[in-house]
Every structure is written in C-alpha cells, then in structure tokens.
C-alpha cells in the first residue's frame, strides 16, 4: 500500500527555527492541513539539542558552547543530548491513525527507522536498528532518534551522522562516568561512526556534497522501505509563521531551555 507523503528539504537554519518548524509541522498535520510529512534539514550554526527530561547544566557545558558559537535548544522529545553539526537531520510526522503508526514506542521506532536503514544501504552502508532508538553500523552508532506523540500525531526526529569531530562533541557534552561505565573518551570515540568513516570518503569530498547525496539516498530509502509516494513541497506560509513564533517565544525562551 503506497502512502502519500509531503517531502520537505528545508536547508540549514538555527536550532530554534529547526525545532519551531518541526512543531509547526506537527500542528499542521494534526489539524489535517497537510499530508504526513518527511523533512530533511541541517543546522547552522552548530547546536546541541537537549532531551525534554534532561537537566541543562548537568548535560551541557554552556560556557563552552558560548565560546564556540554553538547554540543550545531543548527539544520537545525525550532522549539524550545531541550535538548537531555535520549531519543530516530528519523529522517525520504522521497521524496516530496512519497505517505506518504503531502503538508501542519501540515498534514505532523500528518501522520509522527502516527508511534510514534502507537509505544507508543505498549508500553502501550495512546498518541495523539498535533498540531503543539508535541505528548502528558494525556495532557503532550512526544515527540517534527521538519520538513524541502529541495532538494525535507521532513526531519522530533524528540524526544521521555524516562526519563527526568527537573531541569537539565531548568538549561541550558532559558525559558522566555512569553513562560510559567508566570508559574513557577514547573508547567512546570507537562507539560512534559516520558516513564518511564507513565509506572512507576522502577529505576532497566536501561535507556539503555528502549532505546532499545522503539526503537523496535517504529519500529513496524511505520511499522503498515505507512505500512512500512523495509530493515535494515547501512549508506553508502558516507553518513558517508558526515556526518563527515558536522559535522566538518558546525555543529561545530561557524558561523553556532551563526547564530542568
């Protein structure tokens, strides 16, 4: 059964706008104003997004972020802190009654991550779902994801790591010993990978080229895995207006960011 989906490629924006637009799309789909939506995007400047249940000061070195020009934003989804730099981010919004929606969280991840696994295979990367919310290739994490259900819809978003600077990541994320079970950062480095690493892509190929080819592969992957028929479009004027408002009033608001 083919599913009609709206496909958005919204380019590179600041963290607060990216989160604002994901929520504006959730509102649109929940009101029946548009099709279920798959969106691909990037982050400029780089940013750290915090999970809804995380403590700001515990998880992120705010001063280091300020010094490095890295934005900080709290997501509406749970999960861990994510450093958004050289990656492709996607979001997918479907009504709870949609044939692709599953009632259980893990089943839901399994279905909605099949598109990424198929997309990575398109690039020549073998990967698999690692519950609760990761995709790994040869045992190393290449994608992290987070999901919420609001207003009768599932919103899931996540990252596909194109290339990664682990030292930079660990300079801004506070990773307690309990999380790494006492393992050193060097060891943690060996547990994360990227498209560039997996395919041994030379430095002569820019991040921007890899970003574009990854999106193309993911679009094909999602189409194949979930039988999607795309309507390529842009956000509506109302979505853009709502995204800007949410960016300004919610995601830039320190009361929200410092919620915990």
């Amino acid at each position: 059964m083919t599913h009609k989906f709206r496909l958005l490629e919204t380019g590179f924006h600041p963290a607060v706008f990216n989160m604002g637009l994901d929520e504006a799309i959730l509102d649109s789909v929940s009101q029946g104003n548009c099709l279920p939506t798959l969106r691909f995007y990037g982050w400029i400047p780089p940013a750290v997004s915090l999970g809804y249940f995380q403590g700001l000061q515990e998880e992120i070195d705010i001063e280091a972020c300020k010094a490095l020009g890295i934005d900080v934003v709290r997501r509406i989804t749970g999960g861990g802190a994510v450093f958004h730099h050289h990656e492709v981010t996607y979001s997918i919004v479907i009504p709870l009654g949609h044939p692709l929606a599953r009632s259980g969280i893990i089943d839901s991840y399994r279905i909605l991550l099949a598109g990424i696994i198929e997309g990575l295979a398109e690039l020549g990367i073998q990967s698999e779902f690692a519950p609760i919310n990761d995709i790994v290739s040869a045992g190393k994490k290449i994608s992290g994801n987070a999901q919420t259900r609001k207003k009768g819809c599932i919103l899931q978003h996540g990252t596909i790591i194109v290339e990664v600077d682990i030292d930079l990541m660990f300079s801004i994320l506070k990773v307690p010993q309990e999380k790494t079970k006492g393992k050193l950062i060097e060891d943690a480095k060996s547990r994360v990978t990227s498209i560039r690493n997996c395919l041994s892509v030379p430095d002569s190929v820019s991040f921007e080229e890899l970003f574009c080819s990854t999106i193309t592969a993911l679009e094909r992957g999602y189409s194949r895995a979930l039988d999607l028929d795309y309507e390529l479009s842009g956000p509506t004027d109302l979505e853009l207006k709502n995204a800007e408002r949410l960016a300004r009033e919610k995601f830039s608001n320190n009361q929200w960011t410092a919620l915990r």
Binding site: F53, Q54, A146, Q147, R149
Partner: peptide, 15 residues
C-alpha cells in the same frame, strides 16, 4: 523529587 535523564515518557506532561 526531580527525575531527569535520557529516557522517553509519553505523554511528557503526564510524567
């Protein structure tokens, strides 16, 4: 009591 972490709980407000 304040519980924080990397977990998922839906709906978030109910948590």
């Amino acid at each position: 009591l304040s519980i924080r972490g990397d977990f998922f709980a839906i709906p978030e407000e109910a948590f």
